[in-house]
Amino acid sequence: MIYIQILINSILLGGIYACIAVGFSLVWGVMNILNILHGTFLMLGGYITFWLFKLYGVDPFLSLPISAIVMFAAGYAIQRGLINKIVRAPMFMSLILTFGLQMIVVRLAIYFFTGDFRTVQPSYASFSISFYGLIIPFIRVAIFSLGVILTGLLFWFMAKTRTGRAIRATRMDLDSAQLMGVNIGNIYAITYGLGAAVAATAGSLVSVGFAISPVSDLEFLSKAFIICTIGGLGNISGALAGGLILGLVENFGALYLGPGLQNAVGYVVLILVLFIRPTGLLGRKGFE
């Protein structure tokens, strides 16, 4: 029974992991940017939800679109105003730039929000369904479902819309996309904005079931990095697979090795995957 319980927990966790990673994967796959700000967007999304709940009593699930819209705008502006200037430079430049921005934002967040851990506790936080001795917390199921829906929405957007198609075209052949009249600066900014919006929404979801603080961003970032590398960078199904695998590995790792080593197991799997299949399990080149 305990195995089934852990399996359920793993899947529920994996869904939210996928959604934590998918924006990172998008930005890396399309623009070749190693986006250190990714975890910061998650953290900020979490705080948007937290403050709206705390100050105005807004239900955390209702604040998801607000997180998405605010952080889309922020992401769009950052890419258009800053990252686009160096996007042709080696990847190292984008790493330094986003790292610098990350430090500024996190310091500001500590200053304004304090370093305390916060979590959103709506009245229904403790509801759960139990049957045959299995316990399924309502909140976890809600977070899982919304995470999967969000990932699915991104998938649909990339596959079916005019802008999604332009993003893929730009990824495949920048020059040719430009000849079609695609404004590359704008498409890059939209891509980065989308990455930020999905990250922020994931952060909002995380703030309901888990505790966050301004420095949680690095934990989110490292999760995203592991998940993308395991699953294969630059495609949405890779993020889903990577998220589920990490969820399983962490939970079963905690069972056998104790909770202290839970996080280390993820890195071990990462290194194993890199040895066996450097492109990741579902990896292809580029975001398709």
Binding site: R168, M172, D173, S176
Partner: peptide, 8 residues
């Protein structure tokens, strides 16, 4: 060189 979007 045509420059199609190969995986579309």
């Amino acid at each position: 060189g045509r420059r199609l979007f190969a995986s579309m």
